[in-house]
Nucleic acid binder design. Structure first.
Lengths: 220, 220
DNA sequence: CAATCAATCTAACAATCATTAGATTAAGAG
DNA sequence: CTCTTAATCTAATGATTGTTAGATTGATTG
């Protein structure tokens, strides 16, 4: 049966993408690269993995054409091959959260800790941020903010938050976001802000989630 | 580092979904189940695989909560756990087609054979079908048509097409669709119709693709 | 009840994959 | 040119996975 051979070929190609996203480390790499391009060194540090292993996983992602690399001096700088790869990551995470009770519970616990603003009413949120009723802060490293960030958000990296508290208005409510639902930066920021008497909440969306929802982002 | 343990747990869960979609056979099962519920027997026949292997792959999909099963007499009837699983399949296939040259070329060759109507102008197509300018036929087995089909489409399974040619109007253009871009039913239908002097084209979308594009379908 | 059919479970194999260590390449610095 | 740093390649490991065969379960039929 010649049809079988053709079908096997077609599904085999899609399975290449599936294989690429079948490893926790590779998924974490995709999420990191969705924030902007990064060197192998930086990626390895974020993964808490060594360079060799990180490089091997990046090779697998490269062979599935999900990421691409360029050389910059001694550094190799990796990036997502295209924006739809970030969309794939968001889709996978959403399907996992919807179907796997373990993940759903873990995310609910995370959301329960500080007051979290789920994905509800994103348009409304946008309007509140625009008119200044709400102060939206991006607590990721500044280069990730520079790559793309939510509209009306200002950069205030978690590492600098404590020193730069004076930049925040006392009265208004603060909304912190980071890389997405799996990232803890915003949780830490909210905890710090609340300890200092600010009214602060977390937005569980990151830039990829925002974009996947069809909302506008500010890109470089 | 406690954060590492939490992160590993989170990404591990998403990787369960990734692992489930990392096998060509399992992807084919998902596409088949996206057409409607089916028994293990039927699925095995469609896969050209034996029952044991099919059952093992279904178990993997069940453990990732992508499919669910119910017993009907001696038969186990499998179905997608939720509609978003069909969306995941469509997303994976689109990412694969966009990034993997091998797949892109294979699909282009398939599309080149008979005149194929790609995904362009779907709304327009809908309107032409509504007013009868275009005759849309669903050439999948009738139970799949019954589960869900495109608006204004009539069921004319490939297996019965030759005997039921008289049901088709001579003058108007015919548009055949099937399970999606990887399915060959519509190609065969178009070849048969063109051989009999009909003006026929293929629509590469299936119901899942149509739905993923945000367009309405007729469901049971 | 035994016989049959659909499907799964168990055990086993080879093939593939993740991870680690050691050697190697490629670019920049001295 | 040599030394250092970044990253990859190669080889080896243990663990998983895909596949097949044989035994088993669950429900229906005679």
């Amino acid at each position: 049966m010649e049809k079988r051979i053709l079908k096997d070929l077609l599904y085999e190609q899609v399975a290449r993408i599936g294989k690429a996203v079948s490893s926790p480390k590779r998924l974490e790499l995709l999420e990191l690269l969705a924030q902007g391009e990064k060197t192998v060194e930086v990626l390895a540090a974020e993964l808490s993995a060594d360079i060799k292993l990180t490089s091997a996983h990046l090779k697998a992602l490269r062979e599935a054409r999900l990421v691409a690399a360029r050389r910059d001096g001694k550094y190799m700088v990796y990036r997502l091959a295209a924006p739809d790869v970030a969309g794939l990551w968001v889709t996978l995470r959403q399907v996992a959260a919807a179907h796997l009770a373990e993940l759903h519970l873990a995310l609910e616990q995370m959301a329960a800790a500080p007051d979290t603003l789920a994905a509800v009413g994103r348009e409304e949120l946008l309007e509140q941020a625009r008119c200044g009723e709400l102060v939206v802060i991006d607590v990721r490293p500044v280069d990730e903010y520079a790559t793309a960030h939510l509209p009306h958000a200002r950069s205030l990296p978690l590492a600098e938050l404590e020193q730069r508290l004076n930049e925040l208005p006392r009265g208004r409510e603060i909304l912190a976001y980071c890389r997405g639902p799996f990232c803890l930066f915003a949780d830490e920021a909210v905890a710090l802000l609340q300890a200092r008497g600010y009214r602060a909440r977390k937005l569980s969306d990151g830039v990829s989630e925002w974009q996947a929802a069809g909302l506008p982002v500010v890109a470089a």
